[in-house]
Design a binder for these strands. Structure first.
Length: 310
DNA sequence: AAGACGAAAGTGGTTGA
DNA sequence: TCAACAACTTTCGTCTT
């Protein structure tokens, strides 16, 4: 029953023409192992959406409707009690019943649902802008729905809570996007997003591990057009740094940026601090600080010097 | 002239009394 | 609720390539 995912991706890398593509289904990324290009940020979800209820009669019982999803405001299961045209087909007694049902439904359609409808379309916009995998969009919708039900939106703009929910979902699924990217996608101030994000995960008691700098490497490297060699060097550096507790307490993006900068230097693919700083969303100063630590603590000076002779 | 470097002052958030 | 604190940013002057 398992679909062989790799057969779906016999594609060439548009950058270097290589066939060495690797699929990271968690993050919805396809990465070229040869040149490090992120080929496709948003991947199709190949998982089957339906369940088998009974192996004997499975053919007849497959659920054909859309899967239930938090991305629709009523979880995709809604039906409306029909409009006026349907009335003519009903007898007197049924007519009364009909009106009662309609009235009931209007009462249930509270402000919460109206809010959700609006917010989830905004959420959809943001996640398609950021090319997020569906699993993350789904998670973000879930978080937002819970936030609304707990009344956390009161006193905050709907958009900022949406942005916070998306950010939280990204973090939870290890699909890191920087606050700057969220800010660009949503038009909300970076600090505001950070604030609501922290508020939401505290109130909903969502546990989120500090993000791993390594998760940022493929995307940053791809934007800087660095080779796969440099990427793995950067990952190596970060792993070494972790062992001696160089990474704790520091901003993960700063570490990722510095590691990439050093790795590029060692492999003779030098990028300016400014360029690296820009894609990572930190300043040159932060890169310098991390970079200094990396050099002295990991004894990488020799490798740099060696490179300079060439 | 551009990039790298470093000092100093400022920002926003966390922590602990 | 306030002050101390760490990480990061901004700004700016100086050195290096």
């Amino acid at each position: 029953m398992n679909i062989n995912r790799s057969t779906k991706y016999v594609k060439k890398c548009p950058e270097c023409g290589g066939f060495n593509l690797s699929v990271n289904s968690d993050k919805g990324e396809v990465i070229c192992r040869d040149c490090g290009l992120v080929v496709e940020d948003k991947m199709i979800d190949f998982d089957q959406e339906w369940r088998e209820f009974d192996s004997d009669t499975s053919g007849a019982r497959r659920r054909a409707g859309a899967p239930m999803s938090f991305r629709q405001f009523d979880k995709g299961l809604g039906t409306d009690v029909g409009q006026a045209a349907d009335l003519y087909r009903l007898g007197g007694k049924n007519k009364n019943k009909f009106f009662r049902l309609r009235k009931w439904q209007q009462r249930v359609s509270t402000a919460i649902e109206r809010n959700l409808k609006l917010a989830l379309s905004e959420l959809k916009r943001i996640s398609s802008f950021l090319k997020l995998p569906e699993s993350v969009e789904e998670e973000a919708s879930r978080i937002y729905t819970m936030a609304v039900q707990k009344g956390l939106v009161r006193g905050r703009s709907m958009e900022s809570v949406v942005a916070g929910a998306v950010y939280a979902a990204c973090r939870k699924h290890d699909v890191p996007r920087t606050l700057d990217e969220l800010s660009e996608a949503s038009g909300i101030d970076r600090k505001e997003i950070g604030r609501t994000y922290r508020f939401v995960i505290r109130e909903l008691e969502i546990k989120i591990l500090p993000s791993n700098p390594i998760d940022y490497i493929p995307r940053f490297a791809s934007e800087l057009k660095l080779t796969a060699m440099t990427q793995s060097k950067a990952v190596e550096i970060i792993e070494e740094a972790r062992k001696i507790a160089l990474t704790s307490g520091r901003g993960p993006t700063g570490i990722a940026a510095a590691a990439l900068y050093v790795a590029a230097l060692i492999n003779g693919e030098k990028r300016t601090q400014r360029a690296v700083a820009d894609v990572a969303g930190v300043t040159e100063v932060t890169i310098r600080n991390r970079y200094k630590e990396l050099l002295s603590e990991l004894g990488l000076e020799d490798e740099i010097k060696k490179k300079k002779k060439d």
